[in-house]
Amino acid sequence: MSEPLPEDELEQRRRIARQFIEVIPHARALGMRLDQLSPEGAEISLPWREDLVGDPRSGVIHGGVISALMDTCSGAAVMAHPAGARSTATIDLRIDYMRAATPGQTIRARANCYHITRSVAFVRAWAMDDDESRPVASATGAFTVER
């Protein structure tokens, strides 16, 4: 185990990671909001929007939107990890779609970087709507660690 980080360095890291999300044009265009960021992981929410619908018959949001949300949330979790990556990029991402997200409801993603090496970060993520007991989707990803 590494030494615990001083409080100001931890705070600085949180700020950098927060800005990292806020300056992503695509995250902004989709209307993502960073709700939580800590060494334990990240939480990002995305309100339902008509122009993000993937199935016009049902009004269910497109899987691609969930992918973008999970990818961003996973990247944020990597950046917030105390290992201190300066930047990160997705190597691979697998998404399992368990059920359709309920139309009209905000989708919340939660990601956790459960293992990190010098070069690779391993992440798991979940996406939920209002019924948190039944996740909409889960994701597993590997990310680069830029130092």
């Binding site: 902004r28 265009a29 899987g63 992918s67 990818d71 990029a89």
Partner: peptide
Amino acid sequence: EKLIGNPMLPAIHGGVTAAFLEV
């Protein structure tokens, strides 16, 4: 512009790539 994920490089967002492939 709205497809950008990393404004420093710049690069297309990984989520956009995933969405494009899924569509």
